[in-house]
Amino acid sequence: MSFLIYDGTFDGLMTAVFESYALKLESPQVYTKDQLGPQLFEQVLEVSSDEEKALRVKTKIKSILGQNGLQMLWKATLSEGAEVGNIVLGVVRYALKTEKNILKDYGHPSVLSLQEIMKKLSRERHRMTAFVRFKLASDQVYYATIEPDFDVLPLISDHFKNRYADQKWMIFDLKRNYGIFYDLRKVIPVEFHNPEAGQSLSVISIEWDETEKEFQSLWKNYFKSTNIASRKNTKLHLQHVPRRYWKYLVEK
């Protein structure tokens, strides 16, 4: 068995797919360095991302699975799952073998896994569009922090850009230590370089707008008033709003 190591980017993964064909590997497996621990006896090959090779693979995929199919494979990598490289590889190999758009062939294990990843991603994406809570700072920028299970910022960017086109906002992923900032024209990625590792936006103090507190408490009151105590149903509630999301929610 041979292992291909890629750098975690989509182009890197596409390059790895390219190499697996170029080297005619039997049953290749692809991982990032972190995902694959040290190997003693297996053949391990580190692949460096190559734009041209990646493009050739992407073009081929597009011709079989369409633009949407290619997008789907890219999105899957945002899930950061340990097996995602192999799942993408499996789907690509199956598509190349059959020369057919097999994305709805749920009977194939790689396709099924891919679809399951898409489902999880889309659930997490949806949750973030719902649970992001902005706070208005005195500089009139709306700030929010999140810690999503997957790297969903690229997936929610358009949603917030369209919805809040006339206000400046920033959403910061505390887990991955980067954010997106909308400056009324476009969305730009932002990073905070802190000398001390592990520090992130949470330690940077922001001065909030003087109305911020008031609207938070008005919202809390509203939330309380919507509740019908006699119908309390914690199980159902937790199904919709799992506890790990509570920290974002002003009303909690």
Binding site: F131, F223, T226, L236, H237, H240, V241, L249, E251
Partner: peptide
């Protein structure tokens, strides 16, 4: 559209109902 939160009895809150 989106349910931004849920009441403790599990109903979706998406609009400010006044």
């Amino acid at each position: 559209g989106i349910c931004h939160t849920y009441t403790e009895d599990g109903r979706c809150v998406s609009l400010l109902k006044i």
